[in-house]
C-alpha cells in the first residue's frame, strides 16, 4: 500500500473526480481506514476544487424557484416573493396610524403638522389600496400552496410548441384545483391574453381562465377545482384576444398531457 506522502499529489485530482483505476482505489483505501493524513488532505483538496465553481458564468435563478423550495420545506412559512417587488408591510399601517394620532394630539394647530397630517393621510390611502392588492395576491399564493401540498397533487410539464419559449409547470389536484406557472414568458400585446384549457379525453377544450405574464416574465394562475380531472387528457395554453375566447382560436403554445 502506498504511503500518504506518495498520495499527496493526487488529492486534488481525486477531489476533482479525474483520478481513476488503481490510483483512485489507493486513496479510497486510505480514506476507508480513516487515515487522518489523507482524510484531511482530501478535505482540503475538495475545498480547492469547490472554488472552481466561481468560473461559472453568473446566472440568476428564477424567482419562482425560491417560492417552490420554501413552500416545500415549510408550507406554513410565508414564502413571499423576491425583494424585486415593492411590498407595503402590514406594520407600516400601524405606524402610520400612530403618527397621525400623535400629530393630532400634540401639534394640530401647527402649520407644519397640518402639512404632515395631509401627507400621512395620502400615504394611508395608498397603503390601503396596496393592501387590497396584497390581500388578493396573498390569497392566490395561499391557494397555490394548497394545490402544491394536496395529497392528490400531480405535476404536469407543459412543453412549449414554439421555439425559444419556456416550459410551464402545472400541478393538478382534483380536490384543490390547478396551478400553472412559468418564468421568462415573453410579454403579450395589451390586446392579447393567455388562456388555460382543460382538454377532455374526447378532445373538447374547456376554459379554466385567463392570465398574463407580469413585467418580469413571471406568469402564474391558480384555479379552484371545477372539472372532473379523471376526464381530462391534457392541459393547454393558447394566446387569445383580450377577454378570452369560447374556444381556442389558434394552436396551443403549451401542451401538457396528464399521465
Amino acid at each position: 500500500m502506498a504511503d500518504c506522502e506518495q498520495l499527496r499529489d493526487q488529492y486534488e485530482a481525486y477531489a476533482l473526480g479525474a483520478l481513476e483505476g488503481a490510483e483512485r482505489d489507493e486513496i479510497e483505501r486510505h480514506l476507508a481506514r480513516n487515515c487522518p493524513v489523507c482524510t484531511q488532505g482530501v478535505a482540503e483538496a475538495r475545498w480547492v476544487v469547490a472554488q472552481l465553481s466561481y468560473l461559472s458564468p453568473d446566472a440568476a435563478p428564477p424567482p419562482a424557484l425560491r417560492y417552490r423550495i420554501i413552500s416545500e420545506a415549510s408550507p406554513a412559512s410565508s414564502a413571499h416573493p423576491t425583494p424585486e417587488r415593492t411590498w407595503v408591510p402590514a406594520w407600516a399601517w400601524a405606524i402610520a396610524a400612530a403618527l397621525v394620532a400623535m400629530t393630532i394630539f400634540s401639534t394640530y394647530q401647527n402649520h407644519r403638522a397640518d402639512r404632515e397630517l395631509t401627507a400621512l393621510r395620502q400615504q394611508i390611502q395608498t397603503a390601503e389600496s396596496q393592501g387590497q392588492q396584497l390581500e388578493t395576491e396573498r390569497a392566490h399564493y395561499v391557494m397555490a400552496t394548497e394545490i402544491l401540498m394536496a395529497q392528490d397533487a400531480k405535476p404536469v410539464k407543459m412543453m412549449p410548441q414554439k421555439p425559444d419559449m419556456p416550459m410551464f409547470h402545472a400541478v393538478c389536484s382534483q380536490k384543490m384545483g390547478v396551478l400553472v406557472m412559468a418564468h421568462n414568458v415573453p410579454q403579450l400585446p395589451s390586446t392579447m391574453t393567455l388562456q388555460l384549457w382543460a382538454v377532455s379525453k374526447q378532445g373538447k377544450p374547456m376554459s379554466l381562465g385567463m392570465f398574463r405574464p407580469d413585467q418580469s416574465g413571471e406568469a402564474m394562475m391558480v384555479m379552484p377545482s371545477s372539472a372532473d380531472m379523471s376526464q381530462i387528457a391534457a392541459l393547454a395554453i393558447s394566446e387569445e384576444p383580450s377577454g378570452g375566447s369560447l374556444e381556442p382560436t389558434s394552436a396551443p403554445v403549451w401542451v401538457g398531457p396528464l399521465s
Partner: peptide, 13 residues
Amino acid sequence: DRYARPVYSLVLR
C-alpha cells in the same frame, strides 16, 4: 438568498 445564485450558476453551467 445568500447562496442560490452561485449554486444555480454552477449547476446551469
